[in-house]
Simulated scan of single mutants.
Amino acid sequence: MIEAFAHTSYAGRVVFGPGSLHQVAAEVELLGIRRALVIATGSAGQAAGEVQAGLKERFAGRIDGVRQHVPTEVAQAARTKAQEVQADGIIAIGGGSAIGLAKAIALTADVQIVAVPTTYAGSEMTPVWGETSGGSKTTGTDVTVLPKTVVYDAQLTLGLPLNVTAASVANALAHCVEAVWTEKANPITETTAVEAARALSIGLKQVIQSPADVAARGNLLYGACLAGSALASAGTGVHHKLCHLLGGTYNLPHAETHAAVLPQVTRVKAVEVPRAKARLEEALQTDDLATGLFDLFEAAKVPTSLQALGLTREQAVEAAHRFPGDVEEILTKAWAGTRP
Rank of each mutant, 00 (worst) to 15 (best):
I91T: 07
I91P: 06
I91L: 11
A92Y: 03
I93P: 05
I93Q: 05
G94V: 08
G94F: 00
G94K: 04
G94S: 00
G95E: 10
G96P: 10
S97M: 01
A98R: 13
I99Y: 04
I99P: 15
I99E: 12
G100K: 11
L101V: 11
A102W: 09
A102L: 04
A102Q: 07
K103C: 10
K103F: 01
K103I: 03
K103L: 06
A104M: 07
A104L: 11
I105A: 07
I105H: 02
A106W: 05
A106R: 08
L107H: 03
L107E: 10
L107P: 13
L107R: 14
T108R: 14
T108I: 10
A109Q: 15
A109K: 14
D110M: 12
D110L: 06
D110H: 14
V111Q: 02
Q112W: 06
Q112G: 07
Q112F: 03
I113C: 01
I113S: 12
I113L: 01
V114P: 06
V114M: 01
V114C: 04
V116W: 00
V116G: 12
V116H: 08
P117D: 08
P117A: 06
T118C: 09
T118S: 12
T118K: 10
T119E: 09
T119D: 05
T119Q: 02
T119Y: 05
